[in-house]
Every structure is written in C-alpha cells, then in structure tokens.
Design a protein around this nucleic acid. Structure first.
Lengths: 155, 155
DNA sequence: AGATGATAATTGCATTTGCAAATATAGCAC
DNA sequence: GTGCTATATTTGCAAATGCAATTATCATCT
C-alpha cells in the first residue's frame, strides 16, 4: 500500500471524523448529539420509520439505536409506536418538540455543508457526492453472503 | 436542507461507516481491530511518532489512543519509549510482531481500496481523493479559535 | 534559579457502542 | 392449527469512547 494520504478509506475516515467532531460540538449547547441529529434528519426525510430502516439510513447499529431512541423518547423528541401492520416492528414518530429541535439544527447543518464544500463549484460538489454514493454501493459486494446451510443439501 | 441523499456529511458518514464495519469484521480473525490497524498503518508510514501526532493522523482522541496503545503494548505490537528530546512526550515504535501483523493486514487493505473504487477510472479515483483532502482542509476553518484571553489585553 | 503559563500524556468517570443472546411476532409448510 | 424458520426489536455485558481533571515536563520571563 502506498502512502496513507492516498489511501481512500483513510481519507474518508479522516474527513468524516473531522466533520463529525465539529458538528457534535455544536450540538452540545442545544442539548443534542450528532446521533440524535442523524435520527431526526432521517425522520424528517420520512417520518414513521421502523427501527430497522432507521438503522440502515443512519448507519447506527440497531441495538445502539434502541437505546438512543430510549433517550430521545425521554427527552420527548420522538414517540415509539407498535407498527399496526406488523406487531414485531416499532415505528418512530417525531413529536412537536422533535420538530422544533430539528428546525434549530437545520441551519447549522446547512452551514456545514457550505463550509465543507468551500471552493467546490457545483459540478465538483455533485461529482463528489456521486462518487460517495457509488463507493457506498460498491461496498455492497462485501456484505456477508447468507451462511450456506448444509441442511437440505441440494446446492 | 434538501433530501438526505444529497447531504454531504450524510454521504460521507454512510460510506465511511460501511467500509469501517466491513473492515473491522475482517480484522477480528486476525486478533486485531480497525483502530489497531489505523495505528499500525500510521506507524508504517512513519515509525516513532508521538502520541499526539498519532492522534492527529489517525483521528483517534488522544485519551482513547493512550488506552488503545496500552492494549497494543500488551499484545506486543508496539513499544512505548520516552522521547529523548522531550521528556513529556512518548514515542511509539512498532515491534517485529507489529510488523508481521501489518504485513498480514496490508493485502486486505489493498483489497478494500480496490473494491471501494470498483468502476472508477484512475482519474475519477484521484479526483475523489483530492476532493476528500480538500474537504478535510476546509474544515480547518471551523476549529475553535483559541479562547481570547482578556489577560494581557494588548491584542 | 524561581515563577508562570504552555504542552504531552495519562487517568477518572460516565456514556456510548456493538456483538450475542433473548424475546416476540410473522409466515410458510404440512 | 402446529411446528419450524425467519424477521424485528430489545437486553446483557464487556469494551471503547471522550470530556475534564491531573501529572509531568518544557519554555520563557525576570
């Protein structure tokens, strides 16, 4: 492997960590955290998501998410509800307080997007985003294939 | 803010998380972790770094790093040494075992780079990396300015 | 040399994290 | 409808994390 500075996962982590840390600091005075924001942002995109969906869209492990949502519920930001279509599932809804907090965070989020992309022209910015989506999709290939059960061995 | 899928920090985190999780899983059978790899990779780039430098290059908080290095020392992967130039500082050196582990991980790391960049032509890949470096640099602007001490008020 | 303020690393401590196991429900086969 | 397997969420638990405080050394000023 060549120098670190040209290793993609390194560059990715480094950039992500820097944004995350800075953003997290800005959340504190609002009584929020980066993870709380992620959930709120996901629910703003689409309210009433299940835990599992939310876990995928936020990249937060579902067991971590359970406890994060516990907190958010205590803070009155979201409300859990059993999914009427499937009693195993839980559906999350944002409360008015949650919406108010979201509205307060939005301008910060927009500022971050701007700062991060300082000096990028619109085409470059779009290119970067497209590349990140592609990269994400590429990693699908590494997802564990379902464990090959030697049960009804007619493979 | 528009849809999540066009929010840069979101895309960044999502891509990074996916690589990190998958890579972490591959580390387990080797008795390593993603963070251990980060330290080893940083030291491979430049052995004998101080804790603080290592913290910057790996994006691992220095207090976390202290304990991570404790573990790595127990595993015999690295050795701490007081910096002869500055007795406050500690310098890390990779041991032979650390080098051996590094060598075992390298091909995995290279595979990840390849998979992540599947379908990117070299120019596109370089563009992406350049963009990530730029983004990282852009975030410098948000680092807290040193608290303006009203002490020797001759500013 | 002594005092003062900065820098490097570690430690205390409460929180967060994530794997594995447990629980609950669904859906299909028979 | 009973049994079996798959899916959705939660819980147990040990480990990782990060902020704040602490300790040790350095650098500068006088």
């Amino acid at each position: 492997m060549g120098p670190l500075a040209s290793y993609l996962p390194y560059l990715l982590n480094r950039a992500g960590a820097r944004i995350a840390t800075a953003f997290g600091e800005e959340m504190r005075p609002l009584g929020a955290t980066l993870q709380i924001w992620r959930v709120l942002a996901a629910l703003r995109e689409q309210d009433g998501q299940r835990m599992g969906d939310l876990s995928s869209t936020t990249s937060i492990d579902v067991s971590t998410l359970t406890r994060l949502v516990d907190n958010m519920e205590k803070k009155g930001l979201v409300a859990r509800q059993r999914d009427p279509e499937d009693a195993r599932a839980v559906v999350l809804n944002v409360t008015p307080a949650g919406r108010r907090l979201t509205v307060r965070i939005l301008p910060i989020a927009e500022r971050y997007e701007k700062v991060a992309l300082q000096g990028f022209d619109p085409a470059e910015a779009e290119q970067l985003k497209a590349a990140l989506r592609r990269l994400y999709a590429n990693m699908d290939g590494l997802k564990k294939p379902p464990p090959n059960k030697p049960h009804g061995r007619r493979g």
